[in-house]
Design a protein around this nucleic acid. Structure first.
Length: 272
DNA sequence: CATGCGGCCTGGCAGC
DNA sequence: TGCTGCCAGGCCGCAT
């Protein structure tokens, strides 16, 4: 479900809620998500204080006192909610991290494509994080980088953008949105993009992600922040989910196609 | 190496 | 009222 803006929204929402709280217990109800949940999760975390919450790519990192971290990924359908007065759990509420009488953090993930891992030491060195590309909102993601890394590549620009080795955090929604914004057709071979097209694309990716973060992410069906609020960027989507509607720029009709088994939305008139 | 595809899961919805 | 098939914010492993 969540791409960078949604994970960032969760990260920012979570920080004031759980920073400095002590874990008193962890309840694991489902043994496996994408990877098995460690049996030692509860015993390892109990008694540890939350230091910081940060994001790397679409992963959420919760750092605890004592060089311990939780590495979470929400897959397609994961949500994290913080409750001071928790409702009864349902069958997809896989993990509760309990902070005494303050409240609890609940991980729900119906499709179980998500992940919750316990890491000792620097979580950025974890194999899952080590080979990721640059953060799109950092200086490392720039025109020169995109231009050089795309040379001699024949994949379509949309598939290339969604590859987390290229740049992290851009998923199916924001890839379509950024390409529309940059006026680039999603099926174009990325190696054929000009210097100036790469420049537009870098700017478009950054802009759309920034705007989406400001809006608290995008809710298509079930994304919600840690306090249950939806993301309002859905209203600002220009092409995603708008097949058949008219383009805001040129009165063309938004079309849908498949790339790598995923839907891509675009305007056939103003994306070339 | 780069590319393309199926698989992992469940739930919701359209169409019959 | 079913049932069936398709679709969904991601990612990994495998075959070519």
């Amino acid at each position: 479900m969540p791409e960078l803006p949604e994970v960032e929204t969760i990260c920012q929402g979570l920080t004031p809620l759980i920073q400095q709280l002590d874990v008193t217990d962890v309840v694991v109800r489902s043994p496996s998500l994408r990877l098995p949940i460690s049996k030692d999760l509860a015993s390892s975390l109990r008694g540890h204080r939350v230091l910081t919450i940060c994001r790397r790519a679409k992963y959420l990192l919760i750092r605890f006192h004592g060089d311990l971290s939780l590495l979470l990924h929400l897959g397609m359908s994961g949500t994290l909610r913080y409750f001071t007065d928790p409702p009864p759990f349902d069958r997809h509420d896989h993990v509760d991290i309990i902070f005494g009488t303050d409240g609890l953090l609940r991980l729900r993930d119906p499709r179980r494509f998500g992940l919750i891992l316990f890491v000792v030491g620097d979580p950025l060195n974890h194999p899952l994080l080590r080979s990721l590309g640059p953060e799109p909102l950092s200086d490392d993601f720039n025109l020169e980088y995109l231009y050089r890394s795309s040379r001699n590549r024949r994949v379509s620009v949309k598939i290339f953008l969604m590859d987390q080795a290229t740049v992290v955090g851009v998923g199916n929604i924001y890839a379509s949105e950024a390409l529309y914004s940059a006026g680039i057709a999603p099926w174009r071979s990325v190696g054929g993009l000009s210097h100036s097209e790469c420049n537009s694309l870098v700017a478009a990716i950054r802009a759309v992600l920034h705007k989406a973060i400001s809006a608290g992410g995008t809710t298509i069906r079930d994304f919600q922040g840690v306090e249950g609020r939806p993301g309002y960027f859905s209203q600002e989507l220009t092409v995603y989910g708008r097949e058949g509607e008219s383009c805001q720029r040129c009165k063309g009709i938004i079309k849908k196609m498949k790339q790598g088994g995923r839907s891509t939305f675009y305007c056939p008139e103003c994306q070339r």
